[in-house]
């Protein structure tokens, strides 16, 4: 039986603490064997969602998980949500998507840097390029610097990622 949205059903897995990390030697060894048996399920999460302590997720095999962690614990790539004799559930962080922008000149870099700061974007730098962490659709970021792009003062560097 499936519970209505928002309610807990008997099929849901309630996660109130993390079992550990798949990098732990003993746990990793156990998971390795369970993977051969096909009993390891995966939850894929966006990077930005990893800091939430409360969220509802569904594994790659359709198992609903209700995560309610104490604030002293935090999700991470490889966190084990459930591990028993029959099944394991492991978190996989989706790779952070980045938008790489290249200013044509120092004045253009100043203007791009100002825009990124003013818009509170999360950025990192690589050489003369700015990489913006995408936490919303890519076009929403491009729209904010469309004049710089249209004038050729900033170009988009396709990374293939």
């Amino acid at each position: 039986m499936t519970a209505p949205a928002g309610l807990q059903s008997d099929e849901d897995v309630l996660v109130s603490t993390l079992v550990g990390s798949r990098l732990d030697h003993d746990l990793g060894h156990r998971l390795h064997h369970m993977e051969h048996d096909g009993t390891v399920e995966t939850v894929r999460l966006e990077t930005r969602d990893m800091t939430r302590r409360r969220l509802r997720v569904v594994t790659d095999r359709g198992t609903p998980c209700l995560i309610a962690l104490p604030r002293s614990e935090q999700l991470f790539d490889g966190a084990i949500l459930l591990l028993d004799a029959h099944r394991a559930i492991v978190v996989r962080a989706l790779e952070q998507a980045w938008l790489r922008l290249r200013p044509a000149s120092l004045p253009d870099a100043l203007q791009l840097g100002y825009a990124a700061g003013n818009l509170h974007w999360k950025v990192r730098f690589d050489g003369g390029d700015v990489e913006v962490a995408l936490e919303a659709p890519r076009q929403a970021y491009l729209d904010r610097v469309r004049d710089l792009i249209a004038d050729g003062r900033v170009t988009i560097v396709e990374t293939g990622a």
């Binding site: 928002g6 969220l55 209700l66």
Partner: peptide
């Protein structure tokens, strides 16, 4: 209130 409960009050 329902939306809040569904999102974060997971034991309810």
């Amino acid at each position: 209130a329902d939306a809040i409960c569904a999102a974060v009050l997971i034991r309810r």
